[in-house]
Amino acid sequence: MNFTNKIVWITGASSGIGKALALELSKQNVKLILSSRNKTKLTIVKNECKNPLNVKILPLDLENYTSLFTKTTEALKLFNGIDILFNNGGISQRSLAKDTSIDVDKRIMDINYLGTIALTKALLPYFIEKNQGHFIVTTSIVGKIGTPLRSSYSASKHALHGFFDSLRAEVHKNNIKVTLACPGFVKTNVSLNALTGDGTPQEKMDDATKNGLTSEHFIKLLLKAVKHEKEEVYIGGFKEKLAVYVKRFFPKLLSTMIRKLAVT
């Protein structure tokens, strides 16, 4: 795949992985549609792009997933089409399952899962009609394995894998690609914004997140995987990637390892 002249829509584009993705793709002669809830931050990212004239901003809220069909219609009009959708927007969690309100569980599922699939379903008929398209979904290593303090977050990411694996099989005949990108620890504000048990932000950077990959490094590896049309890719440190394979071949061993992780 060559990104040149492609029309790319990115959610969660106001910071972190989404921002780094926008800045990198802007160097590759791409037309960009940037979305998140924060219009001011999106404007800042647009102005940092190599060619701001090739960038449009479209604020949206994934939690308000019933509005996303209308937003998709707006997005398609901005450059008269879309070639690639990076489903990158989402929110994390840091709380024990026993301390997590069911309202927090629902909010995380509404944003991470229902918001993502609503946007995907809204764009899908256009991709089918065009007989071409590519969905890239930022899930997580915890979309493959569950770890303490992330039960709701992990559940939402596992759900994405189930949906998009099914979708990939259904739309193969339409030349539509699906890439599931599973980050390990990436140095972003994800842990600062993570919801605690009562729904308030944690407002603290996890040590593992602080020491994770830079967004820029992550993006280079992600775009390489997308160019090669990988179906699923794990991007992170050695231990995070190793855990996926230990889970596959030695699940009981991984369970023992996971129980030893700090939960406070």
Rank of each mutant, 00 (worst) to 15 (best):
A118W: 14
T147P: 07
E203I: 13
I141Q: 08
V55H: 00
T256V: 09
I33T: 02
N112L: 06
K173H: 09
S154C: 09
S255T: 11
V186Y: 06
S26W: 08
K177T: 12
A97K: 04
V171M: 04
S154R: 04
G162W: 11
T66V: 12
D83V: 07
A181D: 06
N47M: 15
I111C: 10
L223N: 05
I102H: 07
I128T: 13
K77H: 10
I84V: 15
S255V: 07
V178A: 00
A20P: 06
P183F: 05
T66S: 14
D83T: 08
E24Q: 12
A22F: 02
L21V: 05
T43H: 01
F127H: 14
V233C: 00
A155R: 02
L68H: 06
G212N: 02
E240A: 14
S140K: 04
E203G: 12
G146W: 10
T40Y: 09
L261H: 06
S92E: 03
T100Q: 03
T179R: 01
A13F: 00
T196N: 08
A20Y: 00
L160K: 00
T179D: 02
I7V: 15
S14N: 11
L192M: 10
T147W: 07
I10Q: 09
G197D: 03
C182W: 01
E74H: 06
L62A: 07
V233D: 02
